[in-house]
Design a protein around this nucleic acid. Structure first.
Lengths: 105, 105
DNA sequence: TTGACATGTGACCTTTTGGTCACCTATCGT
DNA sequence: ACGATAGGTGACCAAAAGGTCACATGTCAA
Protein backbone atom coordinates (compact mmCIF):
# COMPACT_ATOMS: atom_id res chain seq x y z
CA UNK A 1 0.00 0.00 0.00
CA UNK A 2 2.51 2.55 1.14
CA UNK A 3 5.13 0.99 -0.98
CA UNK A 4 8.12 1.82 -2.90
CA UNK A 5 6.30 4.18 -5.17
CA UNK A 6 5.96 7.11 -2.82
CA UNK A 7 9.66 7.19 -2.07
CA UNK A 8 10.68 6.69 -5.67
CA UNK A 9 8.31 9.46 -6.64
CA UNK A 10 9.83 11.86 -4.14
CA UNK A 11 13.36 11.04 -5.24
CA UNK A 12 13.28 13.33 -8.26
CA UNK A 13 13.69 17.12 -7.92
CA UNK A 14 11.31 17.87 -10.78
CA UNK A 15 8.55 15.88 -9.09
CA UNK A 16 9.19 17.63 -5.78
CA UNK A 17 8.94 20.95 -7.58
CA UNK A 18 5.60 19.87 -9.05
CA UNK A 19 4.38 19.11 -5.54
CA UNK A 20 5.61 22.53 -4.45
CA UNK A 21 3.63 24.15 -7.24
CA UNK A 22 0.48 22.33 -6.19
CA UNK A 23 1.18 23.18 -2.57
CA UNK A 24 1.19 26.90 -3.31
CA UNK A 25 -1.90 26.65 -5.49
CA UNK A 26 -3.75 23.40 -5.84
CA UNK A 27 -5.61 22.15 -8.91
CA UNK A 28 -3.69 22.67 -12.13
CA UNK A 29 -3.66 21.21 -15.62
CA UNK A 30 -0.71 19.59 -17.33
CA UNK A 31 -0.16 22.50 -19.70
CA UNK A 32 -0.14 24.99 -16.86
CA UNK A 33 2.36 22.96 -14.87
CA UNK A 34 4.45 22.47 -18.00
CA UNK A 35 4.69 26.23 -18.48
CA UNK A 36 6.53 26.50 -15.16
CA UNK A 37 9.25 24.08 -16.21
CA UNK A 38 12.04 24.00 -18.77
CA UNK A 39 11.23 20.42 -19.61
CA UNK A 40 9.21 19.14 -22.55
CA UNK A 41 5.55 18.30 -22.06
CA UNK A 42 6.31 14.61 -22.24
CA UNK A 43 8.77 14.78 -19.41
CA UNK A 44 6.31 16.62 -17.19
CA UNK A 45 3.58 14.14 -18.07
CA UNK A 46 5.80 11.23 -17.14
CA UNK A 47 6.56 12.81 -13.79
CA UNK A 48 2.92 13.53 -13.09
CA UNK A 49 2.09 9.93 -13.85
CA UNK A 50 4.65 8.74 -11.31
CA UNK A 51 3.21 11.11 -8.72
CA UNK A 52 -0.29 9.91 -9.46
CA UNK A 53 0.66 6.23 -9.17
CA UNK A 54 2.27 7.05 -5.85
CA UNK A 55 -0.99 8.67 -4.76
CA UNK A 56 0.84 11.90 -4.05
CA UNK A 57 -1.29 13.57 -6.69
CA UNK A 58 -4.95 12.91 -7.40
CA UNK A 59 -6.56 13.92 -10.66
CA UNK A 60 -9.91 14.80 -12.10
CA UNK A 61 -10.83 14.96 -15.75
CA UNK A 62 -13.00 17.69 -17.13
CA UNK A 63 -13.47 17.56 -20.87
CA UNK A 64 -10.10 17.59 -22.53
CA UNK A 65 -8.38 18.87 -19.40
CA UNK A 66 -7.00 16.96 -16.46
CA UNK A 67 -6.70 18.69 -13.11
CA UNK A 68 -4.03 17.75 -10.59
CA UNK A 69 -4.31 18.01 -6.82
CA UNK A 70 -1.77 17.43 -4.09
CA UNK A 71 -2.50 14.61 -1.69
CA UNK A 72 -0.44 14.95 1.49
CA UNK A 73 -1.53 11.68 3.09
CA UNK A 74 1.48 9.60 1.98
CA UNK A 75 3.79 12.31 3.31
CA UNK A 76 2.14 12.02 6.67
CA UNK A 77 2.65 8.26 6.60
CA UNK A 78 6.36 8.67 5.97
CA UNK A 79 6.54 10.89 8.99
CA UNK A 80 4.75 8.38 11.17
CA UNK A 81 7.02 5.55 10.10
CA UNK A 82 10.18 6.87 11.73
CA UNK A 83 9.03 9.47 14.19
CA UNK A 84 7.75 8.06 17.41
CA UNK A 85 4.99 10.11 18.97
CA UNK A 86 6.82 10.02 22.28
CA UNK A 87 9.94 11.54 20.82
CA UNK A 88 8.16 13.83 18.37
CA UNK A 89 8.37 16.75 20.68
CA UNK A 90 12.09 16.29 20.94
CA UNK A 91 12.44 16.27 17.15
CA UNK A 92 10.48 19.47 16.81
CA UNK A 93 12.71 21.04 19.40
CA UNK A 94 15.74 19.97 17.38
CA UNK A 95 14.39 21.62 14.23
CA UNK A 96 13.73 24.83 16.07
CA UNK A 97 17.19 24.72 17.51
CA UNK A 98 18.63 24.25 14.03
CA UNK A 99 16.63 27.22 12.73
CA UNK A 100 17.96 29.33 15.56
CA UNK A 101 21.52 28.37 14.83
CA UNK A 102 21.09 29.16 11.14
CA UNK A 103 19.69 32.56 11.99
CA UNK A 104 22.72 33.30 14.10
CA UNK A 105 25.15 32.49 11.32
CA UNK B 1 21.11 22.01 3.01
CA UNK B 2 18.14 19.69 3.09
CA UNK B 3 18.64 18.79 -0.49
CA UNK B 4 18.34 16.04 -2.88
CA UNK B 5 20.22 13.61 -0.72
CA UNK B 6 17.55 12.89 1.81
CA UNK B 7 15.03 11.93 -0.86
CA UNK B 8 17.53 9.93 -2.86
CA UNK B 9 18.53 8.13 0.30
CA UNK B 10 14.95 7.21 1.10
CA UNK B 11 14.29 5.96 -2.42
CA UNK B 12 15.90 2.57 -1.82
CA UNK B 13 14.10 -0.22 0.09
CA UNK B 14 17.30 -1.53 1.66
CA UNK B 15 18.08 1.87 3.10
CA UNK B 16 14.55 2.22 4.45
CA UNK B 17 14.93 -1.17 6.08
CA UNK B 18 18.15 0.00 7.70
CA UNK B 19 16.29 2.98 9.12
CA UNK B 20 13.61 0.59 10.36
CA UNK B 21 16.26 -1.47 12.13
CA UNK B 22 17.67 1.61 13.83
CA UNK B 23 14.16 2.75 14.69
CA UNK B 24 13.45 -0.45 16.63
CA UNK B 25 16.83 -0.37 18.35
CA UNK B 26 19.17 2.53 17.85
CA UNK B 27 22.96 2.41 17.82
CA UNK B 28 24.36 -0.47 15.80
CA UNK B 29 27.59 -1.34 14.06
CA UNK B 30 28.00 -2.16 10.39
CA UNK B 31 28.56 -5.86 11.02
CA UNK B 32 25.46 -6.12 13.14
CA UNK B 33 23.32 -4.41 10.51
CA UNK B 34 24.89 -6.54 7.83
CA UNK B 35 23.84 -9.71 9.66
CA UNK B 36 20.19 -8.70 9.23
CA UNK B 37 20.46 -8.48 5.45
CA UNK B 38 21.10 -10.84 2.58
CA UNK B 39 23.41 -8.37 0.96
CA UNK B 40 27.19 -8.33 1.07
CA UNK B 41 28.98 -6.13 3.58
CA UNK B 42 30.01 -3.73 0.82
CA UNK B 43 26.47 -3.18 -0.29
CA UNK B 44 25.34 -2.41 3.24
CA UNK B 45 28.29 -0.09 3.74
CA UNK B 46 27.45 1.81 0.59
CA UNK B 47 23.86 2.25 1.73
CA UNK B 48 24.93 3.42 5.18
CA UNK B 49 27.22 5.95 3.58
CA UNK B 50 24.31 7.35 1.56
CA UNK B 51 22.18 7.56 4.69
CA UNK B 52 24.97 9.30 6.56
CA UNK B 53 25.55 11.84 3.80
CA UNK B 54 21.82 12.54 3.88
CA UNK B 55 22.06 13.14 7.62
CA UNK B 56 19.44 10.47 8.21
CA UNK B 57 22.02 8.49 10.13
CA UNK B 58 24.66 9.93 12.42
CA UNK B 59 27.71 7.93 13.46
CA UNK B 60 30.26 7.70 16.21
CA UNK B 61 33.54 5.87 16.10
CA UNK B 62 34.76 3.84 19.02
CA UNK B 63 37.99 2.03 18.36
CA UNK B 64 37.58 -0.14 15.31
CA UNK B 65 33.80 -0.01 15.51
CA UNK B 66 31.44 2.55 14.04
CA UNK B 67 28.05 3.02 15.64
CA UNK B 68 25.04 4.17 13.66
CA UNK B 69 22.13 6.17 14.99
CA UNK B 70 18.87 7.25 13.38
CA UNK B 71 18.34 10.99 12.98
CA UNK B 72 14.65 11.78 12.44
CA UNK B 73 15.08 15.51 11.81
CA UNK B 74 15.17 15.33 7.99
CA UNK B 75 12.01 13.22 8.03
CA UNK B 76 10.28 15.88 10.03
CA UNK B 77 11.39 18.51 7.52
CA UNK B 78 9.89 16.52 4.66
CA UNK B 79 6.61 16.48 6.52
CA UNK B 80 6.69 20.21 7.12
CA UNK B 81 7.42 20.96 3.47
CA UNK B 82 4.05 19.79 2.16
CA UNK B 83 1.83 19.65 5.21
CA UNK B 84 0.77 22.98 6.52
CA UNK B 85 0.06 22.70 10.23
CA UNK B 86 -2.72 25.25 10.05
CA UNK B 87 -4.55 23.48 7.24
CA UNK B 88 -3.72 19.94 8.23
CA UNK B 89 -7.38 19.07 8.58
CA UNK B 90 -7.79 19.60 4.82
CA UNK B 91 -6.09 16.27 4.38
CA UNK B 92 -9.32 14.57 5.29
CA UNK B 93 -11.23 16.66 2.78
CA UNK B 94 -8.89 15.54 0.02
CA UNK B 95 -9.46 11.92 0.83
CA UNK B 96 -13.19 12.49 0.61
CA UNK B 97 -12.78 14.30 -2.70
CA UNK B 98 -10.87 11.37 -4.08
CA UNK B 99 -13.61 9.00 -3.03
CA UNK B 100 -16.18 11.17 -4.81
CA UNK B 101 -14.21 11.21 -8.01
CA UNK B 102 -13.85 7.46 -7.94
CA UNK B 103 -17.59 7.12 -7.55
CA UNK B 104 -18.21 9.29 -10.60
CA UNK B 105 -16.16 7.11 -12.91
C1' DT C 1 -16.73 20.17 -39.88
C1' DT C 2 -12.54 21.80 -39.63
C1' DG C 3 -8.59 23.20 -37.20
C1' DA C 4 -6.54 24.16 -32.92
C1' DC C 5 -5.96 22.43 -28.35
C1' DA C 6 -5.15 19.11 -24.28
C1' DT C 7 -3.62 14.88 -23.23
C1' DG C 8 -1.74 10.04 -24.10
C1' DT C 9 1.53 5.92 -25.80
C1' DG C 10 5.64 3.34 -27.26
C1' DA C 11 10.20 3.26 -28.74
C1' DC C 12 14.60 4.95 -27.94
C1' DC C 13 18.93 6.76 -25.83
C1' DT C 14 21.75 8.52 -21.97
C1' DT C 15 22.77 8.89 -17.17
C1' DT C 16 22.37 7.25 -12.59
C1' DT C 17 22.12 3.75 -9.26
C1' DG C 18 22.60 -0.91 -6.90
C1' DG C 19 25.60 -4.50 -6.05
C1' DT C 20 29.94 -7.27 -5.99
C1' DC C 21 34.83 -8.02 -5.87
C1' DA C 22 40.01 -7.52 -5.14
C1' DC C 23 42.58 -5.15 -2.25
C1' DC C 24 43.75 -2.10 1.77
C1' DT C 25 44.13 0.12 6.71
C1' DA C 26 43.37 0.12 11.51
C1' DT C 27 42.34 -2.06 16.05
C1' DC C 28 41.63 -5.75 19.37
C1' DG C 29 43.05 -9.90 22.25
C1' DT C 30 46.43 -13.08 23.53
C1' DA D 1 54.15 -9.60 17.44
C1' DC D 2 50.51 -12.15 15.50
C1' DG D 3 46.13 -13.58 13.61
C1' DA D 4 41.56 -12.31 13.69
C1' DT D 5 38.29 -8.73 13.47
C1' DA D 6 35.94 -4.20 11.97
C1' DG D 7 35.79 -1.03 8.61
C1' DG D 8 37.15 1.41 3.98
C1' DT D 9 38.32 2.42 -1.33
C1' DG D 10 38.14 2.15 -6.43
C1' DA D 11 36.95 -0.29 -10.39
C1' DC D 12 33.55 -2.63 -12.64
C1' DC D 13 28.99 -4.41 -14.54
C1' DA D 14 23.87 -4.91 -14.91
C1' DA D 15 19.56 -2.74 -14.05
C1' DA D 16 16.68 1.22 -13.56
C1' DA D 17 15.40 6.00 -14.18
C1' DG D 18 15.22 10.61 -16.73
C1' DG D 19 14.24 12.80 -21.00
C1' DT D 20 12.86 13.42 -25.93
C1' DC D 21 10.49 12.34 -30.20
C1' DA D 22 7.12 10.49 -33.75
C1' DC D 23 2.71 9.43 -33.63
C1' DA D 24 -2.20 9.05 -31.91
C1' DT D 25 -6.90 10.05 -29.57
C1' DG D 26 -10.36 12.84 -27.91
C1' DT D 27 -12.50 17.69 -27.18
C1' DC D 28 -13.57 22.52 -27.84
C1' DA D 29 -15.17 26.53 -30.59
C1' DA D 30 -16.25 29.08 -34.69
Amino acid sequence: MTGDRVFKALADPTRRFLLDLLFTRDGRTLTELESELEMSRFGVMKHLRVLEEANLVVTRRSGREKWHFLNPVPIREIHDRWIDKYTEHHTTALIELKAELEDES
